[in-house]
Amino acid sequence: MSSNLAIAMHVAKKELRVQIGYRNKFIADVLSHVIGIVPILLITLALSGSSLNDIDGITRANALFVFLGYAAFMAFGFGTPIMIYTGMAWGISEELQTGTIERNFLAPVSRHTIVAGIGIYYACLYAFHVTTLMILAFFLFPSTAEIPVGNLAVAGTAALGLIALSAGLGLSSAAMFLMIRDGSLFLLFVHRPFMILSGAIFLIELLPGPLKLIALVNPVAYGVDAFRWAFSGHGTLEDPWLEVGIVWAGALVAAIVGVIVLGRVIRRQSRTGELSRI
């Protein structure tokens, strides 16, 4: 039997082909991160008192802060660099609706591998988003192109950690979408708090008391902070390498929880027969 990784890559390739079949959606997925940042930058500009014809140094610094946080994790509207776990969930949801999920689960491979394969597709898309945003950053904020190699290592490991964390969460979100017919509730209580409490476009210390406490145990916040530090030299939470360690620890926990939850849900579905009910 082929290794699970090879099978997962094969599933990812299939997902790519299927997504290309939805041509307009695919184009939007590929470009959404660029469209998504536009209103945020425009609001930043206005709040800083600048206009498109007149951008000063303070505005540029504010915009860089927001841009780096967005590139690392922020999801807004439909431009979603955190689409790995939402993508895995919606991917599963779509397979449930088209009826192909059962057919996949009939193959003699781990069912986690099938879900992980969908995650790989979205992880690649996410990596593409981060990369293209950073290329854009080099033009909009030339200082980001002049960072030391050590900083690049921090940014790279932080981004990879966020990918791993998202994939781990993706297993749980896919499980929830299998279990709950309308899994948006899970996205509401997991996805959106993660999005909000990541401090991607604001300072975490401005959050009201209890929310700030929750944000400080959210590993995403540390990944975003490390990424931002790498390109701007400004971090607000911990030592960047410690932050990278926190992200990876979070990723490990998310992966373990995800594997267990997905396994239990698939087993439950096998008992209730709900796999084919949409």
Partner: peptide, 20 residues
Amino acid sequence: TASSTGFFFVAPLVLMGKTI
């Protein structure tokens, strides 16, 4: 979900305003 959409989508931008 719909009841909380206003909060979840707009809150980060309001906090961004506070940051700036």
